[in-house]
Design a protein around this nucleic acid. Structure first.
Lengths: 247, 247
DNA sequence: CCCAGAAAACTGATACGACAGTTTGTACTG
DNA sequence: CAGTACAAACTGTCGTATCAGTTTTCTGGG
């Protein structure tokens, strides 16, 4: 699930992929220190390629680093999360518009199929209790749904921008062990039908409703957490204990 | 005008800034080879910080590098340019919407003022003949106009996404020595008034018209260039001649 | 003259070592 | 016991050297 790819079999690339996966899987939770030397030893390479990997991750917003005092998995702020949803509203509404304009018949079919699958997952999760990790996995399926829409729009730039913004969401999920509320039954299928059958404008507005629904949920959750003693947003330094974390 | 900033006074940062400025000013035109060693000697540092700078520029899309065969200032493809405008339509329409919702009175005033200034520049350019470089400078003023709208939207994520996508435009301008057609008189002032006085939806639609106007211009130009023998899109290797280019 | 193949000159990728700044832990002072 | 100064251990940063892959150039045959 790495965002930027450069299929070199280089060390730097391997380090990037391992770190990216580890962060997105929640094995490296936000706030975890990332020491070049420790990671280099763990990966069996020098610190140089590790540094390159960290630099890329920093450019993508998954890692933050203070000039000479270490890097760590980024802890997103409340306003960043909110801003991310604002950005997504811009991107995904346009993506929906392009879908309505350009999608082929097979695109529409595929979208409807994955929408039903996604609704089934959410329905199952409603009954069983679930951990944040389980939820993140469902969220990853959710990402496929939205990427399918973006790709049918036939605009690589828009699709990759959506992917980038979505990746940051995972980081946030693990920060707050957040769980979304339950969606009305058949929510995604209904959205998919509107995209497949509606005019470009109708598709865009349907997507806007969808994104805002989630955004409002998030804002409410953030208010709860920051209101009731900062929740888990600001965690302590957390000394190095880089065991076999990013295998 | 660098995109990512990290106000270290480090060598890597200095190299990044110098290269970024040189590319955006047109001193380093698309296709120019960027040798780590040559640049290192020129900047009075080792190849390591230069490599870091190139890596950042690559992440931003200004530089491309083939695994072990050198980096060069990126030559954008036709579909990338078109996709960039598509992306911009998504971002800027939403930016306009937020402007209509959140801008303060002083935001509106400032926008109207810069719109008039911008219109004056374009009017002056219409009379005099102008080089691509001159045009790019005007385009930079144009960028301020759009960044002003984005910042009034109070969403840092959206603003930085717009900035990133706009930066790539400069690169393109120098590739094709492209010149836009002449805009109707008072075009930007009219747009600014619609953003300042209209509803969020009206603002968004006004911006959409603006972006598409430019997009159609670009598509037409691209068709001319690729149709009539590829124009200057694909330039030869162009041997190293890194004189005092990036001072 | 043209074209294949070898050699030379380039390229980035990585390792290692030295260095300077930051953080942390501790011992000493009030 | 609180606060401060100091030292140790960490951090990223950068320079130099080496290596392997790519590109260009040169060379020799047709």
């Amino acid at each position: 699930m790495p965002v930027s790819k450069r299929q070199n079999a280089d060390f730097a690339d391997s380090a990037y992929r391992r770190l990216c996966d580890a962060i997105l899987d929640g094995r490296l939770t936000p706030g975890t220190p990332l020491s070049r030397r420790v990671l280099a030893a763990e990966f069996g390479m020098s610190t140089v390629p590790v540094g390159e990997a960290l630099l890329r991750l920093e450019a993508e917003g998954l890692v933050e680093s203070r000039p000479r005092a270490g890097s760590r998995v980024r802890i997103p702020t409340a306003s960043e999360i909110q801003g991310n949803y604002e950005l997504r509203e811009a991107l995904e509404t346009h993506s929906a518009r392009l879908f309505a304009e350009r999608a082929t018949e097979s695109d529409r079919k595929r979208l409807l199929a994955t929408a039903e699958k996604l609704d089934a997952i959410f329905a199952r999760m409603e009954r069983k209790s679930y951990s944040a990790v389980r939820h993140a996995l469902a969220e990853r399926q959710h990402m496929r749904f939205h990427m399918l829409i973006a790709e049918a729009g036939r605009c690589a730039e828009l699709a990759s921008a959506i992917e980038r913004s979505r990746v940051l969401l995972f980081n946030w999920l693990f920060t707050m062990s957040a769980e979304f509320g339950v969606l009305p039954e058949g929510w995604h299928s209904m959205l998919a039908r509107k995209l497949a059958d509606g005019s470009p404008r109708e598709a865009a507005e349907a997507m806007r409703v969808h994104v805002r629904y989630r955004k409002d949920e998030v804002i409410e959750k953030l208010a709860q957490l920051t209101g009731s003693g900062a929740g888990r947003m600001a965690r302590g330094p957390q000394r190095h204990r880089n065991g076999d974390s990013a295998k």
